Simulated scan of single mutants.
Amino acid sequence: MQVLGIESSCDESGVALFDTERGLLAHALFSQIPIHQAYGGVVPELASRDHVRRLPGLIRQVLGEAGVQRPDAVAVTAGPGLIGALLVGATLGRTLAYGWGVPIIGVHHLEGHLLAPMLEPDPPPFPFIALLVSGGHTMLIRVDGIGRYTLLGESLDDAAGEAFDKTAKLLQLGYPGGPAISTRAEQGDPAAVSLPRPMLDRPGLDFSFSGLKTAVLHQVRQWTAPGTPQQVADLAASFQEAVVETLFVKCQRALRDSGLQRLVVAGGVGANRRLRERLKQLPAEVYYPRPEFCTDNGAMIALAGALRLQAGEHASPDFCVRARWPLEQLGVPA
């Protein structure tokens, strides 16, 4: 079965074709970062308009590279995300599915991230613990199978990705914040500035990063003038280390409490090199998607749709797109 995946939840237009027997046949991605950089963040209206411009060409490109005229099914991101951007992908997907006479399925964006490591040659077997650090989400989840997800902990305020973006803005490093902080941190001392490790002194697996962002703000305000390059690098490195240590300790707790020895790390922050270095210290097998599939992409949507259809999910064009869609509401295929 060949499934065309369409991702349009935020600021990346992604398309891919996944074959359940041969794997990923082709994929293409257009990032809108240059469009939104001038505004310091995503502008929803601009994101929706650019999806309209980019997705048809990306679909033609992917089908052409794969040598396929008509896939067996279409999978589109149904949420969570920017509602206008989601509607662009869903409308285009429904139109194609109707014209081709094939089924269409709406996919949960976060499920796509959770399953993205299964695109790799050595996919993780169930069950495993997943650290999902994508955009506005920082979550620890026990994954026992497709749709069998147990939320263990989540961010109570700012997610890690949001904290990276806001800290980068405070340090005038630009957007997106994750790569900007990581690059500048390479020239800094991670022990130069004492910053809090949020909620590590409490039991449980929830996260909180708003206080860490505020601590960075206080440091910036102590500078008598704009920070020197070294001050900025040291603060970036210290901030990154605080986030990484917090994520590391929470993953350690989740593995210990569950008795599992497999960890999947998915989402944009999962591409952070310092985080990957630190997680090597865990007494567990750690799985990642390749860097290009850490951020939003069509391949993870095609894969998630294919796995659900294989498991017996009833495909219907009547799915609703949702700006908010808690992962725990997503059931097993039926």
Results as ranks from 00 to 15, higher is better:
Val76Gly: 00
Thr77Ala: 11
Pro80Glu: 07
Gly81Ser: 06
Gly81Gln: 08
Leu82Phe: 11
Ile83Gln: 10
Ile83Leu: 14
Ile83Cys: 00
Gly84Trp: 13
Gly84Glu: 12
Ala85Asp: 14
Leu86Cys: 04
Leu86Val: 10
Leu86Tyr: 09
Leu87Cys: 13
Gly89Cys: 12
Ala90Trp: 08
Ala90Pro: 12
Thr91Arg: 13
Thr91Asn: 15
Leu92Cys: 08
Gly93Pro: 11
Arg94Ile: 13
Arg94Lys: 15
Arg94Phe: 09
Thr95Leu: 15
Thr95Tyr: 07
Leu96Trp: 14
Leu96Thr: 08
Leu96Ile: 14
Ala97Gly: 10
Tyr98Asp: 15
Tyr98Pro: 02
Tyr98His: 15
Gly99Ile: 10
Gly99Ser: 13
Gly101His: 13
Gly101Val: 12
Val102Ala: 10
Val102Asp: 10
Pro103Leu: 07
Pro103Ala: 10
Pro103Asp: 06
Ile104Leu: 12
Ile104Phe: 08
Ile105Lys: 06
Gly106Cys: 09
Gly106Thr: 06
Gly106Asn: 06
Val107Thr: 01
Val107Asn: 00
Val107Pro: 01
Val107Trp: 01
His108Arg: 08
His109Ala: 03
Leu110Ile: 03
Leu110His: 02
Leu110Met: 14
Glu111Gln: 10
Gly112His: 02
Gly112Ile: 00
His113Lys: 00
Leu114Ile: 08
Leu115Ala: 09
Ala116Val: 01
Ala116Pro: 06
Ala116Trp: 01
Pro117Arg: 05
Pro117Tyr: 05
Met118Asp: 02
Met118Ile: 08
Leu119His: 02
Leu119Gln: 00
Leu119Pro: 02
Glu120Asn: 02
Glu120Ala: 07
Glu120Arg: 07
Glu120Gln: 09
Asp122Ser: 12
Asp122Ala: 14
Asp122Met: 09
Pro123Cys: 01
Pro124Lys: 02
Pro125Gln: 04
Pro125Thr: 07
Phe126Val: 03
Pro127Ser: 03
Pro127Val: 04
Phe128Glu: 04
Phe128Lys: 05
Phe128Thr: 08
Ile129Ala: 01
Ala130Leu: 09
Ala130Pro: 07
Ala130Trp: 09
Leu132Trp: 00
Val133Ala: 13
Val133Asp: 05
Val133Glu: 06
Ser134Phe: 11
Ser134Arg: 11
Gly135Met: 01
Gly135Asn: 02
Gly135Arg: 03
Gly135Asp: 04
Gly135Phe: 01
Gly135Tyr: 04
Gly136Pro: 01
His137Thr: 03
His137Ile: 08
His137Leu: 08
Thr138Gly: 11
Thr138Phe: 07
Thr138Ser: 14
Met139Gly: 11
Met139Ile: 11
Met139Val: 12
Met139Asp: 13
